[in-house]
Simulated assay, not measured.
Amino acid sequence: MAKALARHILVKTEAEAEQLKKRLDKGEDFAVLAKKHSICPSAKRGGDLGEVRPGQMVRVIDQVIFKKPVRVVHGPVKSQFGYHLVQVFFRE
């Protein structure tokens, strides 16, 4: 079965997600920004979602994790929870 290692930052607005993505593009640390800004419980772990398998996450995030390129920050991706910035480290 497929699996991946991923992390994300979840915020309430698209504007906030865009601002954080610009900061990431300039080289700021993903984990530090996740701890400070993410509203997901994973923020305590720097946004680390751990090992993820297909169907564990909401559909739009699942598609990013299992279909988009690895080691790239994707987003903002809108879900019913807010706006996500998602990065996949490993996928098999």
Rank of each mutant, 00 (worst) to 15 (best):
Q87R: 15
K3T: 01
L33I: 03
M57D: 14
R53H: 04
F66C: 05
L49Q: 15
R45Q: 07
K26S: 11
I39M: 06
G55S: 09
Y83N: 07
F66K: 13
S79I: 08
K78G: 09
Q80P: 05
F89Y: 12
D25W: 00
E28V: 12
Q63D: 12
E92A: 11
H37Y: 11
V88Q: 15
T13S: 13
V32N: 13
V70K: 14
G75S: 07
K12P: 03
V11L: 13
T13K: 12
F81D: 14
Q56F: 10
V11I: 04
K68P: 00
K67E: 09
V73M: 01
K22T: 01
P41M: 08
G75Q: 10
A43R: 03
E18A: 01
A2L: 12
D29M: 08
H37A: 03
D62V: 07
Q56R: 10
K44E: 10
E14N: 05
K67A: 13
K21Y: 07
R53S: 04
A43N: 05
R7G: 03
Q63C: 00
K26C: 02
G55D: 12
E51R: 02
H74E: 10
G75H: 11
E16L: 12
E14D: 09
P69Q: 14
A15C: 00
A2F: 10
R71P: 00
G75K: 12
V11Y: 02
V64C: 05
K21W: 01
A15F: 03
V70C: 10
T13C: 04
D62K: 10
K21R: 14
E14P: 00
V70G: 05
K78T: 11
M57R: 14
G46R: 04
K12W: 03
L10K: 08
A43M: 02
L33D: 06
H8E: 10
A34K: 15
V86M: 07
I9V: 07
Q87E: 14
L5E: 01
D25I: 00
K36H: 03
S38C: 09
A2N: 13
E92S: 15
T13E: 10
F90E: 14
V52K: 03
C40F: 07
F81E: 08
A4N: 07
A6T: 07
L10H: 02
V64I: 13
I65M: 10
K21M: 12
V32Q: 15
E28W: 04
G47Y: 03
V72Y: 04
K26P: 00
I65C: 11
